[in-house]
Computed example of a mutant assay.
Amino acid sequence: MAMQDSDPVEEDGAAGQPQRKIIHVDMDAFFASVEQRDNPDLQGKPVAVGGSSGRGVVAAASYEARKFGVRSAMPSVTAKRLCPDLIFVKSRFDAYREASDQIRAIFRHHTDLVEPLSLDEAYLDVTANKLGIASATQVAQMIRQEIRAKTRLTASAGVSYNKFLAKLASDQNKPDGLCVIRPGEGAAFVQTLPIRRFHGVGPRGEEKMARLGIATGADLAAKDPAWLAQNFGSFGEYLYRAARGIDDRPVRANRIRKSVGGERTFSVDRHEPEELRATLADIVDIVWERIERAQARGRTVTLKLKYNDFQLMTRARSLPRNLEGKEEFARISSEILEELLPLPRPIRLMGLTLSNLDRDWEQGEEEVRRRDGKSGQLALF
Score class of each variant (00 low, 15 high):
Ala169Asn: 04
Phe189Tyr: 15
Asp176Cys: 12
Arg182Pro: 11
Gly200Cys: 03
Leu212Cys: 04
Asp224Arg: 06
Arg211Ser: 15
Pro225Asn: 05
Tyr240Thr: 01
Gln191Asp: 10
Ala187Lys: 13
Lys150Thr: 15
Ser160Trp: 04
Glu206Ala: 09
Glu206Trp: 13
Thr154Leu: 13
Pro194Lys: 07
Thr154Tyr: 15
Ala229His: 07
Leu165Gly: 01
Ala188Arg: 06
Ala169Met: 04
Gly184Glu: 12
Thr192Arg: 09
Ala149Lys: 14
Gln191Arg: 09
Pro225His: 08
Lys208Val: 02
Gln145Met: 13
Ala140Ser: 13
Leu168Thr: 00
Ala221Gly: 07
Leu212Arg: 03
Gly213Pro: 07
Gly213Asp: 07
Lys223Phe: 11
Leu239Thr: 02
Phe198Lys: 06
Lys174Val: 10
Thr216Glu: 00
Arg204Asn: 09
Trp227Gly: 05
Arg182Asp: 11
Leu153Ile: 13
Ser160Arg: 09
Tyr240Gly: 01
Leu228Phe: 05
Ala136Met: 05
Gln141Asp: 09
Ala218Tyr: 14
Arg182Lys: 05
Ser170Arg: 03
Ala222Asn: 08
Gly205Cys: 02
Pro183His: 06
Gln191Ser: 11
Val139Phe: 14
Val190Asp: 02
Ala157Lys: 11
Ala229Ile: 08
Arg211Thr: 14
Lys163Arg: 03
Gly200Leu: 01
Gly200Glu: 00
Gly202Glu: 00
Ile214Trp: 07
Glu206Phe: 15
Tyr240Cys: 05
Glu185His: 07
Asn162Gln: 02
Lys150Pro: 15
Arg152Asp: 15
Asp176Ala: 09
Pro175Tyr: 02
Gly236Val: 09
Arg182Cys: 14
Ala215Phe: 14
Asp176Ile: 10
Gly213Gln: 04
Ser156Tyr: 05
Thr154Ala: 13
Ala166Thr: 05
Arg152Val: 13
Ile214Val: 08
Ala169Ser: 10
Gln141Thr: 08
Ser156Trp: 03
Ala187Tyr: 00
Leu212Gln: 12
Tyr240Met: 05
Asp171Gly: 10
Pro175Gly: 02
His199Val: 04
Leu168Arg: 01
Glu185Arg: 01
Tyr161Leu: 11
Met142Thr: 12
Gly205Asn: 03
Ala226Val: 14
Gly177Phe: 01
Ala155Gln: 12
Thr151Lys: 04
Gly158Ser: 05
Gly202Tyr: 06
Val159Trp: 07
Gly217Leu: 02
Gly184Ile: 11
Ala149Tyr: 10
Lys208Ser: 03
Thr151Phe: 01
Val139Asn: 09
Pro175Leu: 05
Lys150Phe: 04
Ala218Thr: 03
Ala210Cys: 10
Ala229Asn: 08
Phe235Trp: 04
Arg144Leu: 15
Val190Tyr: 02
Gln172Gly: 04
Thr192Cys: 02
Gly200Arg: 02
Phe164Trp: 01
Ala215Glu: 08
Thr151Met: 09
Asn231Ser: 11
Lys208Ala: 02
Ala242Ser: 08
Asp224Met: 01
Ser234Val: 11
Lys163Tyr: 00
Ala215Tyr: 05
Glu237Thr: 06
Ala210His: 13
Asn231Met: 04
Gly213Ile: 02
Ala140Cys: 10
Gln145Asn: 09
Glu185Met: 10
Asn173Ile: 12
